[in-house]
Design a protein around this nucleic acid. Structure first.
Lengths: 266, 266
DNA sequence: AATGAAGGTTGCTCAAATTGCAACTCGCTG
DNA sequence: CAGCGAGTTGCAATTTGAGCAACCTTCATT
């Protein structure tokens, strides 16, 4: 392997946490040692000890009845200090405003590890409120949010990351299949200030997104409306303009904050 | 040391994450290697390597301009799968209902590692919306939420944990100073279904809290109203009864969910 | 342009932690 | 009560991390 692999203990722990996260989803479910060992493909003794250590740090919690483990509160407490978390708390009112106006599910996305991570979502009144958060979705190219997030990458970066094979594999619709087409689409997004997507990621689903920027003007997130084609299809550009406005407002809020932070002495 | 200390690498990593979290608060701030090394009291070479590993896993992120580190998106993604996170997303509407009615800041707390962790907060309209989340506060005895959360511990556990010294140290007001007094107060809480506290944790601040339970009937969280004495002082018991109602509703919502989850086969 | 300090990374050796296996403990079940 | 699944623990070989010193960069100063 030429890829640097990092500390072994940490990797093991992350695999374990990831396995717990993927199979536990905040519900009552909990995984036993053997189960986890299977999932990560390691000795159960090793996993037993690793989990004991993680539990001591509060990264996982053990149900004393079941002996099962789940993710722990420490993660929650640490996550509250991430940039993403700050973004969520600031952005929520803006997302709600969009929902109030458009009456469709609105989410906030960021680009992490070249995938699109949903960090917050607001749904109109009666929609089932699940764990709105998170979920690493398709590799950027197939959603309007993803395209917005890469819309200011330079051409070389786009071509490097979005190989023709990747593009062909990602979408279900033929509109954007080559790097050239993608680059043209990105140019259009830059020009319009928002992106729309019609049935590309998923049949029957349309969406539009607009960029949120930090005080450097860099795109740090995208606000994204997702809706059934039947409901939003014919006013998609209208929604696009609206979402661009909301994203602009959020950008202003965000940058005024960061300027303020910059002014603090020491 | 007789206390088991756990894996060394993990402890180091947690210290680093904790240091970053405490000094970075989701803002643009970022800490350099030397700074972190100072904060955790370790060799900078060690910290440099540890941070590199953490960065590779996405637990921290590096600002390529500053070379500074901050907490990373991976934490956010993992945290979304914790019980606490699920609690937040379910509880938020109930908290908002309380805010709408009482017009005071309302928070949701859980007991973790014998401290009270705030997992969600909602403030009335114009209050400054900071990072409402988290923050390990006083050791349980000094707030109404803390007392609610331990209100069904058995006497032995209470006496073991709340030594007279701890009690004397925690509060600023003389009402509850001995284990006996605390136990009486806990009995009162059980009887009333809510707790009130008048200027004990902080002068000029009053509060009331009520327990939220899981499907086993165990107390898993507390809804807590905190307000200036001048504004809420004379209707504290009224607010207490109201918050107890809200907590009850949340409990019902929570347990109906968990029953549903229990029914899922496999 | 030279100097030097601050901040960060890398190489290297020795001490310390982890691995993997096997043995062992529980709690159940037929 | 034998056998099984699940989890924990002891131990020797091996891998990993700690600490130190050297080394790069960058940036401010003279």
């Amino acid at each position: 392997m030429s890829v640097p692999t990092g500390p072994a203990g940490l990797r093991r722990d992350m695999q374990i946490l990831e396995a717990l996260g993927a199979n536990t989803n905040g519900t009552g479910a909990a995984l036993g040692v053997s189960r986890v060992a299977e999932l990560v493909g390691r000795e159960k003794s090793q996993v037993s000890r690793a989990l004991a250590g993680l539990a001591q740090e509060g990264l996982v919690e053990r149900d004393s009845d079941t002996l099962g483990y789940r993710l722990g509160w420490r993660l929650f407490a640490l996550a509250a200090r991430t940039f993403e978390s700050r973004l969520v708390s600031i952005a929520t009112p803006y997302l709600r405003a969009v929902v109030a106006r458009v009456q469709e599910t609105t989410v906030l996305c960021v680009l992490r590890g070249n995938d699109v991570l949903t960090v917050a979502s607001e749904a109109p009144a009666h929609a089932f409120r699940g764990i709105g958060w998170e979920g690493v979705t398709v590799p950027a190219a197939a959603t309007s949010a993803g395209r917005v997030l890469v819309s200011e990458w330079d051409e070389a970066a786009v071509r490097t990351y979005f190989t023709p094979e990747k593009l062909a594999a990602a979408g279900v619709h033929p509109e954007v299949r080559t790097p050239r087409q993608l680059l043209d689409e990105l140019a259009r997004i830059r020009k319009n200030g928002y992106a729309t997507v019609d049935e590309e990621f998923e049949l029957g689903v349309v969406g539009c997104s607009a960029p949120v920027r930090d005080f450097n003007g860099r795109i740090v997130a995208a606000i994204n409306i997702v809706a059934p084609k039947g409901r939003l299809g014919d006013r998609l550009d209208l929604a696009g303009r609206y979402v661009a406005g909301a994203a602009q407002q959020l950008t202003e809020r965000l940058t005024s904050d960061q300027e303020a932070a910059g002014r603090i002495p020491g």
